[in-house]
Nucleic acid binder design. Structure first.
Lengths: 187, 187
DNA sequence: TGTAGCATGTAAGCCGTTACATGATTGA
DNA sequence: TCAATCATGTAACGGCTTACATGCTACA
């Protein structure tokens, strides 16, 4: 009953800390719309598994809605305490990053520059789309004080992924510059 | 014999693609000094496990050094083919990010602003140190053409983590501004 | 002589993903 | 009545981490 809460567990407790009673399905949707930008978007199956554990440990409270299959979850007092003390007392871990594109560049000697350029371009595209989505998210948050920190994270994301895009652009320029230089030296 | 290569497996094959014969221990050290900035730094035990699998599958070749316990690994022709076709033909996955700090900010309503500020400051510190380390790495690479792509990744990292630092700074300013505004409104 | 670094592994377990399986509700 | 969406799970597995366990080598 006192096993440690998993990272995704804390994330779900966090979503429930906005004092709404939500189903697993709704939590998943919300995670996809918010957490996904800076944290993993857990698959449905994990959301349910996690909620089951949290309920067993008394960190969330479950309520069945009438005859429906739908269960709704809300944060318990113990859950809130657990979450708050985690937020306050545990040191922040550094961001866990697995940047697949960077690995490809690192191994650039194994492929043609054009292959690299193609990968970089699709990545830049991805950045662009993500930034557009982020802007839309921020837009939807409005200026309700309840979403103050969500808004701050959205703005943080804009700077962060702006850096991501800048890094990709710079790399593209560098690689294009050197590979065309090589081309012309072939003449 | 034809099971899929894991992400870390590809990373190790990648390190071996620089045509050196290395021990597991040396691979781990090198990973800590390079991969760690943009990819996971696999623990020793995983390096050995992975090398075992790669050897079973004929993707790396092992050689015992004299009476020593030390085994040295090098990339086989099959390993190189596998790696190159992966690099060329498989689509780049988007970066996998778990940004613990961002989650804390998202849940900022649960703690005091000072707690958040403390976390942010230690994160900014971390950014600073990482950027220093990155600069040192780049310095050590010199201008040997063999490390051309490593150098490009180091430069990419400088831009990338520059964005990370910028995002943290901005957030700090925003939070400080609003929390002091709240303080003065209490008077 | 002792300790720091070199060197290799095994065992257990958890977090998370993928695939599978089922059924209710709503609206066109 | 059909399809899309809502809704909840189970099973299997794989990647990675943590903890444990062992021994050699160089050098101060």
């Amino acid at each position: 009953m006192d096993r440690p809460v998993t990272p995704t567990g804390y994330a779900l407790l966090g979503l429930l800390s906005f004092d709404r009673e939500l189903s697993g399905y709704e939590l998943k949707q919300w995670a996809d719309a918010s957490l996904r930008f800076f944290y993993a978007a857990p698959p449905m199956s994990q959301v349910y598994a996690e909620l089951g554990r949290l309920a067993d440990d008394g960190l969330v409270l479950v309520r069945r809605h009438g005859s429906r299959a739908t269960k709704r979850y809300r944060l318990s007092a113990a859950g809130r305490r657990r979450l708050v003390s985690w937020l306050r007392d545990s040191p922040v871990e550094p961001p866990a990053l697995k940047h697949h594109l960077a690995l490809r560049v690192f191994l650039g000697h194994l492929v043609e520059p054009e292959d690299l350029v193609a990968h970089l371009e699709s990545h830049r595209q991805w950045c662009e789309e993500l930034l557009t989505e982020l802007a839309a998210v921020k837009e939807n948050l409005g200026d309700d004080p309840a979403w103050r920190y969500a808004r701050l994270v959205a703005e943080w994301g804009e700077t962060y992924y702006g850096g991501e895009r800048a890094a990709a652009r710079r790399l593209l320029e560098d690689i294009r510059a050197t590979s065309t230089a090589e081309d012309s030296s072939h003449d």
